[in-house]
Design a protein around this nucleic acid. Structure first.
Lengths: 134, 134
DNA sequence: CAGAATCCGTGGAGATACTG
DNA sequence: CAGTATCTCCACGGATTCTG
């Protein structure tokens, strides 16, 4: 397979990985890149909310208990930069800004749900394993 | 759905999320927890290698260019604590330690591959979106 | 309403050196 | 061979203040 830098995807299906794995290429692996983007404190939750319907800025602020304005802005900007979320400004007074998933963002929800299902389904096993190793 | 703290999974399928999302419960969401565990620098690569076959410690060290002994140990320990990787010590001289995926670890590879496929398949779009917003 | 700008504290990643 | 021990550093996240 030639579409991944490190063969991470391919290897999960039982193909070969170049060993040793080159350090420089692994750093640019798209899979790792995606995981890092999803794993911060608020991204997953915002994706989930926006997966239901569009939201305005302060609407999200109210919907997510505990998030600061700064982190809400920052997280939305990153999602927008990656093309997962679209930001639309309505020239009203006061200004209204709406956020919604792009088609790319919507398409991400499917594989993400599969992983989420696994997490939910096996969370008890992980918790049990953790307590066992205390 | 009652198996997830925040409804993240359920909402991805179009169900309801409790709004506002309680801060304390979201912190313990199994999905976020899993993503965090997968998103560090080496976990994904080690899972991938161990998905092919068992490895000894220094064998992994050689296979992963750029990883330090400390991070290799730490990452493997975390995977072991979570029950994804099994560590087996052979009382030879010098000592031999083998790492392999547990059945739980193997089962994770499937949904993870789906996400990896998405990452590979849409990486060009993400890269394009990023450059567009320069 | 929807942010930008600034400051700050802290956890955890990672390098280096040492060891049974 | 397979680890520990110790250190540094910075980027992630939060609080606060200001604005078109």
């Amino acid at each position: 397979m030639s579409t991944t830098n490190t063969g991470v995807t391919a290897s999960m299906r039982g193909h070969q990985l170049p060993v040793p794995v080159p350090a420089g290429e692994y750093a640019r692996c798209p899979v790792t890149d995606l995981l890092r983007g999803l794993s911060d404190k608020w991204t997953l939750l915002l994706l989930t909310l926006l997966g239901q319907r569009p939201y305005r800025f302060n609407e999200l602020h109210r919907a997510v208990e505990g998030i600061s304005q700064r982190m809400l802005t920052r997280t939305l900007r990153t999602l927008e930069t990656d093309g997962l979320v679209a930001r639309e400004v309505f020239p009203t007074l006061p200004p209204t800004v709406e956020y919604r998933l792009t088609p790319l963002g919507v398409s991400l929800l499917e594989p993400l749900s599969a992983l989420a299902d696994w997490a939910v389904g096996h969370h008890a096993e992980i918790t049990a394993a953790r307590q066992r190793s205390t």
